[in-house]
């Protein structure tokens, strides 16, 4: 999966969590949490969706790696390289 596809995947999951989420002004190097009003439960949802869709096991200590779209791409790129 390419970096762009990974970012689209994350945005798609967030859209499922909050249909009103507005991605127009989203900056990919800034924390998603502040820009989209996400809480810790929302990040747990992202983790569960990644496990459900791509059988990814993300350990709790790695959750901070999902902070921004760029960091998601950095962290998930090697894990999803064969997808």
């Amino acid at each position: 999966m390419t970096r762009a596809a990974i970012k689209d995947l994350i945005l798609e999951i967030i859209k499922d969590i909050d249909e009103d989420a507005d991605f127009n002004t989203l900056q990919s190097d800034q924390p998603l949490r502040d820009q989209l009003d996400l809480d810790s439960m929302d990040f747990l949802d992202i983790v569960m969706e990644l496990r459900k869709r791509h059988k990814l096991q993300i350990p709790e200590e790695d959750y901070p790696q999902l902070a921004s779209l760029d960091s998601c791409a950095n962290y998930l790129e090697p894990l999803l390289k064969n997808v």
Binding site: M41, L44, D45, V47, M48, R51, K52, K55, Q57
Partner: peptide, 17 residues
């Protein structure tokens, strides 16, 4: 309810492993 979701994440991760 929220704790149910948190624990479900642990359970799902365990069952799949």
């Amino acid at each position: 309810i929220n704790y149910g979701v948190i624990v479900s994440n642990d359970v799902d991760s365990y069952i799949r492993s």
